[in-house]
Amino acid sequence: MESLDATNTIVQQEVGTKAHHISDPHQHKDAVGAKIGMWLFLFTELLLFGGLFLLYMAYRLQYTKDFVIGGQELNIILGTVNTIILLTSSLTMALSIAAIQRGKKDLSIIFLVSTILMGLAFLVIKYFEWTAKFSHGIAPNSPELLSKPNGEIVFYGMYFSMTGLHALHVLIGIVVLSFMLVFLLRNKITKEDYIKLENSGLYWHLVDLIWIFLFPLFYLIH
């Protein structure tokens, strides 16, 4: 019991010295802990998409030719533009954090707004891509699609579910980043405490990472 008390005192002392850096001594913040939590969440996301990629692999091995036919129907230009948009949005996200680290709030806001706008641009392009497919009668369960060979049905099934789930993540990312923008404007995210922005950034980069694999697997099959 005594040793436990001794440990507690040491812990309290350590917390005391750490709290020194933070403006409000009653608010104990643990940026590393918060980040570990975020990474653990990202791993669950990795497994969620991992499962779909696994299914993709199994089907692609089974229906190699149909996947090639399906892949050639997709618009490489729109896919490439979206890739560049998402990569650039990841850059501005990283720059937004770099700016707040240096205490440049205005710059951080400009970069964050650019990130959000690029996320929206990605979704707009995705919308046009999907509606173009729909207008050709290619939609989940459409008679046109169901008349195609099994492999192509599976290809479009994977295409709609994987890019759809990804687009949903982009949308969630945009909402999260919009909240971060409000926090930045209200000085809830500052030079001293920007872990919220950092963790949202991690989420945004994960969404970018998934697209890095979705793009060659769907658009660049030959």
Binding site: H21, V32, T88, S90, L91, L95, A98, Q101
Partner: peptide, 27 residues
């Protein structure tokens, strides 16, 4: 903890170089 953050500031230029590499690899 704050100290660690400050030690690991990545320059803006590094991020831009990484971005350029990513775009080149996409092309």
């Amino acid at each position: 903890m704050e100290k660690e953050h400050k030690e690991h500031f990545i320059p803006y230029g590094t991020y831009i170089l990484v971005w350029l590499s990513l775009i080149s690899l996409t092309v």
